[in-house]
Simulated scan of single mutants.
Amino acid sequence: MWRELAPIGRDPASGGYRRHAWTGADTDCRAWFRAQAETRGLAYETDRNGNQWAWLGDPAAGDAVVTGSHLDSVPDGGAYDGPLGVVSAFAALDEIRRRGAEFTRPFAVVNFGDEEGARFGLACVGSRLAAGQLTREAAYALTDADGITLPQAMERAGHDPAAIGPDPGRLARIGAYVELHIEQGRALDLSGDRVGLASAIWPHGRWRFDFTGEANHAGTTRIADRRDPMLGYAETVLAARRAAEAAGAVATFGKVAVEPNGVNAIPSLVRGWLDSRAADPETLDAMVAAIETAARERAARDGVDVTVVRESFTPLVEFGHALRDELDRLLGGSVPVLGTGAGHDAGILSGAVPTAMLFVRNPTGISHSPAESAAEDDCVAGVLALADVVEGLACGTR
């Protein structure tokens, strides 16, 4: 499975993946998922929001055990973020069948669409729509860098966007959702464990900072006469680093757009996107407020206007202790429990269904990069742990 999936969407120059939602690479990943489902005799379907499902047993019976993740990527992302969870889900089913266990609850593997938000700027679109955290109207307003709207992109990829929206009936079928994911950090590497359990997902969000100044000639405009928005942006990037260090949190300006974007032109607009995360909402709010204050103070000095828009936000997610404790029991009670600053579909679904997460060791801690990696032995340990969990929950044999 890994060898078949690995070439899809891989950029030969960077070695990273560009599997953006509703593109050709995404279509190829979806075809791979469907082939895996049909090879195993699972009932395949795509829901109203473009999420893919592979069912064993009758979904209408309810109380299903579901596992999976996503197949899309950030720009030049790594191979494991998302796909490891989907590949491991199918592999865990194969392992359970090899053991001869019989399912007493419906079971499904899922691929949630557009988890990374690389194309339309909003993460977890598929699961947000299903959980009612993203309205149809707001989804229709999403556009990519070329001005293509989300519904246009879905339609071009062969999916009817007319029906997108909350899907409470489908979520009501789920009794437990368990997502396996490569750890996006080094906690397991430092502890020497192959597999861990998630305790919580930090609150996090994305803010757009627009610095509006005045375009002018770079060679003829006196320094004293300039209204250069790049200065405010640069100061804000540094302020974000200082605020994050002081708060014990993280803040990153990882995307920027400049107009008119000429080497010999003073910009008229610098637009930067802040990704910020902290262990609790109070710390996050205070940190973002400090960053915004720094932006406005610098902009005032330079005669530049600033607009700050919160484009997305995910509150603190504390995974339910009942399911987490059951997973811990099924795994022998010796699995470390750790928090994470990374968002996931499991976090979005946690308000609607019982959810839990398993992490697989990442020896370098690098993620969202072609350098992301995991040892084969650790991946196999993740599959076996997921198989133990699914067998215990869906077969009642452990």
Rank of each mutant, 00 (worst) to 15 (best):
F319Y: 15
G392E: 03
W53K: 06
E297S: 11
A375C: 10
L180G: 02
V337F: 08
D193V: 04
G175L: 05
D377Q: 15
E137W: 06
A61K: 11
T236M: 13
G205L: 05
G196C: 10
H159S: 04
L284Y: 02
A176Y: 00
V86L: 03
A25C: 05
S268E: 15
L349C: 09
R324L: 11
R34L: 13
I96P: 02
L93C: 10
L171S: 06
A131G: 06
L338W: 08
V360D: 02
M154T: 01
A138E: 15
A187Y: 05
G248S: 06
E326I: 10
A91V: 09
G82T: 04
P370K: 02
G272W: 02
R105Q: 09
G382Y: 07
R48F: 06
R222G: 15
A239Y: 12
G117Q: 04
G262L: 07
E214D: 12
L358C: 10
W22P: 00
H204Q: 15
N264R: 09
P363S: 05
A394F: 03
H159L: 11
R105V: 08
A286L: 14
S199W: 03
D63I: 03
G185M: 07
D146T: 14
L142M: 13
A92E: 01
C395R: 00
A286H: 12
R186G: 05
G85F: 02
T293P: 07
I348M: 13
T104P: 12
A286N: 10
V195T: 04
G185L: 12
A145P: 06
G192S: 11
G347V: 11
V178Y: 00
W55H: 07
L142G: 02
E292T: 15
E137I: 07
A153R: 00
P75L: 08
W32S: 13
E214P: 05
E137S: 14
L188E: 02
E245G: 09
E292G: 13
T236W: 03
M230V: 12
A224G: 07
